[in-house]
Simulated assay, not measured.
Amino acid sequence: MQGFIINLNKVKDEDLIVTIISKNSLDTLYRFYGARHGVINLGFKIDYEKEGSAKSSIERLKDVIHIGYKWINNHEKLRLWQNFLRLFYKHLKDAHEIDDFYFNLLEDASQNWDKQSSKRVAVESYVKLLEYEGRLHTEMECFLCHNKIEGDISLIRAYLPTHKECTHTLQISQHGLKELYEHKSSLFLSNKEVDRLWHILLEGL
Score class of each variant (00 low, 15 high):
residue 76 E to A: 09
residue 95 A to C: 12
residue 53 S to R: 12
residue 29 L to D: 04
residue 37 H to V: 02
residue 77 K to A: 02
residue 73 N to G: 03
residue 22 S to G: 06
residue 88 F to M: 00
residue 58 I to E: 04
residue 57 S to R: 09
residue 79 R to E: 06
residue 79 R to Q: 08
residue 27 D to G: 00
residue 111 Q to R: 13
residue 86 R to K: 15
residue 86 R to W: 03
residue 19 T to S: 14
residue 117 S to Q: 13
residue 106 L to R: 02
residue 63 D to W: 11
residue 88 F to A: 05
residue 76 E to T: 13
residue 66 H to L: 14
residue 49 E to N: 13
residue 36 R to I: 03
residue 96 H to N: 04
residue 18 V to Q: 06
residue 24 N to P: 03
residue 28 T to A: 03
residue 94 D to N: 10
residue 85 L to W: 06
residue 94 D to W: 02
residue 68 G to L: 11
residue 27 D to N: 12
residue 44 F to E: 15
residue 54 A to H: 08
residue 58 I to T: 13
residue 89 Y to N: 11
residue 90 K to A: 10
residue 78 L to W: 13
residue 20 I to P: 00
residue 117 S to E: 03
residue 65 I to C: 09
residue 30 Y to W: 15
residue 110 S to N: 12
residue 69 Y to F: 13
residue 46 I to M: 11
residue 14 E to I: 01
residue 73 N to M: 10
residue 80 L to Q: 07
residue 78 L to R: 12
residue 37 H to F: 10
residue 107 E to H: 08
residue 44 F to N: 10
residue 91 H to D: 11
residue 53 S to Q: 10
residue 100 D to K: 13
residue 85 L to K: 02
residue 108 D to I: 13
residue 112 N to D: 14
residue 19 T to G: 00
residue 111 Q to H: 14
residue 91 H to Q: 05
residue 72 I to T: 12
residue 63 D to A: 11
residue 40 I to A: 04
residue 109 A to D: 04
residue 52 G to A: 06
residue 30 Y to I: 05
residue 83 N to Y: 07
residue 75 H to L: 15
residue 97 E to R: 14
residue 45 K to L: 02
residue 71 W to G: 00
residue 26 L to F: 00
residue 103 F to R: 03
residue 72 I to G: 08
residue 74 N to P: 05
residue 112 N to I: 14
residue 96 H to Q: 03
residue 56 S to T: 13
residue 79 R to I: 01
residue 73 N to T: 05
residue 83 N to D: 10
residue 49 E to K: 14
residue 67 I to D: 02
residue 71 W to R: 05
residue 93 K to V: 05
residue 75 H to G: 03
residue 34 G to M: 02
residue 14 E to T: 07
residue 115 K to Q: 13
residue 100 D to M: 09
residue 49 E to S: 14
residue 21 I to V: 05
residue 21 I to F: 02
residue 57 S to V: 07
residue 89 Y to Q: 01
residue 14 E to W: 07
residue 75 H to Y: 08
residue 45 K to T: 00
residue 45 K to Q: 01
residue 110 S to C: 14
residue 37 H to N: 10
residue 59 E to H: 15
residue 23 K to H: 12
residue 99 D to I: 04
residue 50 K to M: 11
residue 44 F to M: 15
residue 22 S to Q: 04
residue 116 Q to N: 07
residue 65 I to P: 00
residue 118 S to P: 06
residue 98 I to N: 04
residue 58 I to R: 11
residue 20 I to A: 00
residue 27 D to Q: 10
residue 119 K to L: 11
residue 105 L to S: 06
residue 60 R to A: 06
residue 24 N to Q: 03
residue 48 Y to Q: 01
residue 68 G to V: 08
residue 43 G to V: 08
residue 85 L to E: 01
residue 62 K to D: 05
residue 40 I to M: 14
residue 99 D to P: 07
residue 110 S to Y: 07
residue 81 W to F: 05
residue 49 E to P: 04
residue 54 A to T: 12
residue 60 R to H: 13
residue 66 H to M: 10
residue 73 N to H: 15
residue 15 D to T: 02
residue 52 G to S: 12
